Computed example of a mutant assay.
Amino acid sequence: MRVPEFDLEYTLDCGQSFRWQRDGEWWSGVVGDRVIRLRQRGDRLDIEGNADEKFLSRYLRLDDDLEAIYADISRDARIASVIGRFRGLRIMRQDPWECSASYLLASYSNVARIKKMIAALCQTYGRELGGGKYAFPAPEEIAEGGGDIACCRLGYRADWIKAYARSVASGEFDLEKLKELDYQGAISYLKTVKGIGDKVADCIALFSLDHLEACPVDVRIARAMREIYGVTGSYRKVSGYARKHFGPYAGYAQEYLYMAEDPARKKDVTAWTQGTRRQGL
């Protein structure tokens, strides 16, 4: 599959999805009930498993015009430099149920811990797919399943996910309605779920509802907004400033800044920035 303007590693390793693991030069993951392996070689993507080009094009948002997005969000030298360093990173288009349930568990935790919790939830309630892989459980499987949620070691999040699954399974929380709402409407509706606050709602809106203006603010983004743009204050103030500054694709700018603020990559980003300045780029 040809994938111009795409970087598999940056896309899968930027914290937006939790069921992908590096396996040598391949990436292995489960998307819903699809077991998939991907490998990139230049502008070609090798595919193994239950996924075709149509599915992957949608899931990886290969329909996004990255050049147009870059042109729109490059509103200052810093973000332009960061884009240059991480070109090809794309926001993924995840399933709203899987994404919302995953981010409900993500509250006040790190990526490694979130991956363990989701893996445990899938093993306890999801359908076995073979090779030690499990599908992401449907709301009904969590709400009505006989698995022992204590085995998942979710802590206080266990009550949240059980209540949310029951709400979705019963239709009290309507995922189809959620998909039809505009950005502000989606955020307000998501926040009616216990355990979903501003940041989690923004993550769900950005990664599964096509609201590319959403700008989740975590510790890294708060630091970037403070150190680069001099913006501090409440979540609403910082996120609102970012949406206004970066425009309708603020979520893309956020994800590039998130990568740049990764401690493992920050020195590399600084060296890149200094190099581009010396070259006059």
Rank of each mutant, 00 (worst) to 15 (best):
E9W: 02
Y10E: 00
Y10S: 10
Y10P: 10
T11H: 01
T11G: 01
L12R: 02
C14H: 15
G15W: 15
F18V: 07
R19H: 09
Q21V: 09
Q21I: 12
R22P: 01
R22L: 01
R22T: 03
G24R: 08
W27H: 04
S28V: 14
R34T: 05
I36W: 01
I36G: 01
R41N: 11
L45P: 10
I47K: 00
G49H: 05
N50R: 14
D52P: 12
E53Y: 05
K54R: 13
S57P: 02
L62C: 01
L62G: 04
D65T: 10
L66M: 15
I69W: 01
R75W: 13
D76T: 08
R78F: 15
F86Q: 00
G88C: 04
G88W: 04
Q94A: 11
Q94I: 12
D95I: 00
P96T: 10
W97C: 09
C99L: 13
C99H: 05
S102R: 03
S102Y: 02
Y103W: 07
S109R: 11
V111W: 05
R113I: 15
R113V: 11
I114P: 08
I114L: 13
M117C: 04
I118E: 03
A119W: 05
A119T: 14
C122T: 11
C122G: 07
Q123C: 12
E128S: 12
G131E: 12
G132R: 10
K133H: 11
D148E: 13
R153K: 13
G155E: 07
D159G: 14
A163C: 03
Y164H: 14
R166W: 08
A169K: 02
A169C: 13
S170G: 14
E172S: 12
K177H: 15
Y183F: 14
Y183D: 14
A186L: 03
S188A: 14
L190Y: 10
L190R: 05
V193A: 06
V193S: 01
I196C: 08
G197P: 03
V200M: 11
D202L: 08
L206I: 02
F207E: 09
L209S: 02
L209F: 00
D210C: 13
A214H: 09
C215F: 13
D218H: 01
I221F: 03
E227C: 11
E227Y: 13
G230F: 06
Y235L: 10
R236L: 10
S239Q: 04
Y241Q: 05
F246Y: 15
G247M: 06
P248S: 07
Y249C: 02
A250I: 00
A253H: 04
Q254V: 04
E255C: 10
P263M: 05
A264D: 15
K266V: 11
V269R: 00
T270Y: 00
A271V: 09
T273F: 03
Q274N: 15
Q274K: 05
G275L: 00
T276I: 13
R278D: 14
Q279E: 13
Q279Y: 09
G280P: 06
